[in-house]
């Protein structure tokens, strides 16, 4: 299966041949050669808070955390300081990974809380050529359907943001949407995109962490083909339409 997808930069184009491999780079005990943590006790899923300028690393972290037995908490850079504290407290989170551009922003958190912190590599470093040792994901659908995929949070418009644990099985809802019948002469957009698009460009807004909507989009795309083949969320519906799925392009 062709796993290529691309990240488009103004000056150049980077091909990601196998995002599954790239997420291997992101096991906590291997990141940048720093020994951060060992593989956690099975089914504990320790939390890793992550903050970056809203690029493809969000999804690499998400897949990498799942494969390594963790769960990623995406904290929005727009949250007020007390909201970050509350999210870390409520999720019992003791690890924080950040992109270099957020170093200043997260300093107060590092001073006020006990957090293992890691500045992650750039997109270019993470997507650089080179072999990465595979880390197979062994769980079956039944074993992993209630496992965490990622932890998002409410917007905070009605108070302090609350964490939302997205389970791996939730993606099967989006998967099933491809089987919805026509309504008023129109088809559901995920199905239409699968039918018509070959490579789908998804320019993302600054300052937003991935939303459930981007997760829906994942079910259109190659990263999810990798997700579904390497994680356990493989449903018969999904398998039947893998071949024609469009490639998703992140910028």
């Amino acid at each position: 299966m062709d796993h290529d997808t691309s990240v488009c930069h103004p000056q150049r184009r980077v091909e990601i041949r196998l995002i599954q491999d790239r997420s291997q780079r992101h096991q906590p005990h291997r990141t940048q050669g720093i020994e951060v943590v060992d593989r956690p006790t099975k089914d504990l899923f320790p939390m890793i808070a992550y903050i970056d300028p809203n690029d493809v690393r969000y999804f690499i972290v998400m897949f990498g955390a799942v494969k390594a037995g963790y769960k990623a908490l995406f904290i929005s850079p727009r949250n007020p300081h007390e909201a970050q504290h509350s999210l870390l407290e409520r999720t019992d989170c003791h690890m924080l990974w950040y992109a270099s551009s957020f170093k200043t922003l997260i300093q107060p958190l590092l001073h006020e809380r006990h957090l293992d912190s890691v500045q992650v590599g750039s997109v270019e470093e993470w997507l650089a050529e080179g072999e990465v040792e595979p880390l197979p994901y062994q769980k079956t659908w039944d074993e992993a359907r209630w496992d965490p995929l990622v932890v998002l949070h409410t917007s905070g418009s009605t108070g302090i943001p609350r964490p939302i644990v997205v389970r791996q099985g939730m993606l099967s809802i989006d998967d099933a949407s491809h089987e919805l019948p026509e309504m008023h002469g129109t088809r559901f957009f995920t199905k239409e995109a699968t039918n018509r698009a070959r490579r789908l460009l998804l320019p993302r807004r600054n300052g937003h962490s991935p939303t459930s909507c981007s997760l829906t989009l994942l079910t259109l795309s190659v990263p999810v083909q990798c997700l579904f083949t390497t994680l356990a969320v493989s449903t018969p519906l999904f398998a039947s339409r893998c071949a024609g799925a469009p490639r998703l392009c992140w910028v």
């Binding site: 488009c8 103004p10 300028p53 493809v56 789908l200 807004r205 469009p246 910028v251």
Partner: peptide, 24 residues
């Protein structure tokens, strides 16, 4: 592009340099 707010100019750049046939 992730460092910049989303606006038409970078979108057009990506449509020009990237091999894509659809957009969100």
């Amino acid at each position: 592009m992730s460092e910049r707010p989303l606006s038409p100019d970078p979108v057009v750049e990506c449509l020009t340099c990237g091999d894509v046939d659809s957009i969100i």
